[in-house]
Computed example of a mutant assay.
Amino acid sequence: MHRRSFLGLSATAALAGTFGAITPAFADLPSLRFRDMYSRGKDLSDQAVALQGLRIVMTGYMAPPLKPEINFFVLTKTPMATCPFCDDATDWPNDIVLSYFAGDMKFTRFSNLIRVEGTFDTGIETDGPTGFVSKVRLLDTSYTIL
């Protein structure tokens, strides 16, 4: 395993990540599966609503970015060779989550299964620099390749 973190962790935590350790924080955080995010159509499930503002863990795949200079990636439930972003929130698929990094971006191969930790955020928002519209997001994310 290889851990990538962009949260300004302590030197000890950063060194542990270098050698592939999964931080105990992952074990203590609530998790959300893609299939549990929505209840009916495009309505968020009660479980997802209850996680608003909390640090959570999700597992999925990092879709390739459209531009190398962006500070986010799209977390998907299945590997995707291209970015699945939509330009309209009404078309938002229920199997992607916009994931913002805090700090420098490090992308991984789209076929690598990853575990992502971040603060769960909901509501329709538009990313200023790119114009991408999102309904669910993870903020201040870090990830571990599984």
Results as ranks from 00 to 15, higher is better:
63 A>L: 04
44 L>P: 02
61 Y>C: 03
5 S>Y: 11
89 A>C: 01
25 A>T: 11
99 S>A: 15
32 L>W: 01
72 F>E: 03
91 D>I: 00
111 S>W: 08
104 D>A: 15
17 G>L: 01
32 L>Y: 06
17 G>V: 04
79 P>C: 06
42 K>C: 01
86 C>T: 15
71 N>F: 09
81 A>R: 13
47 Q>R: 15
32 L>N: 08
18 T>L: 13
42 K>H: 07
31 S>H: 14
4 R>W: 14
130 T>H: 11
71 N>L: 11
119 T>D: 00
76 T>E: 05
134 S>G: 12
46 D>E: 14
2 H>Q: 13
32 L>K: 06
57 V>H: 02
70 I>H: 11
81 A>D: 07
24 P>I: 02
111 S>A: 10
13 A>F: 08
61 Y>E: 05
138 L>A: 09
25 A>R: 10
60 G>V: 06
123 G>R: 03
145 I>W: 02
64 P>Y: 04
110 F>L: 01
138 L>V: 05
63 A>T: 07
26 F>H: 11
146 L>W: 03
85 F>R: 06
71 N>D: 15
77 K>C: 08
64 P>D: 02
82 T>H: 05
56 I>D: 07
3 R>S: 05
132 F>P: 00
56 I>G: 09
38 Y>A: 00
128 G>R: 12
128 G>N: 12
88 D>G: 01
58 M>F: 08
10 S>H: 10
50 A>K: 14
5 S>A: 11
119 T>L: 01
130 T>L: 12
75 L>A: 06
97 V>W: 08
65 P>V: 12
120 F>T: 07
29 L>C: 08
137 R>Y: 06
16 A>W: 01
2 H>A: 06
134 S>R: 08
111 S>M: 02
102 A>M: 13
55 R>Y: 12
23 T>L: 13
47 Q>H: 07
23 T>W: 15
105 M>L: 06
87 D>Q: 10
122 T>I: 14
47 Q>G: 00
109 R>V: 04
54 L>Q: 15
30 P>H: 03
5 S>T: 08
137 R>G: 03
116 V>A: 09
20 G>N: 01
12 T>K: 11
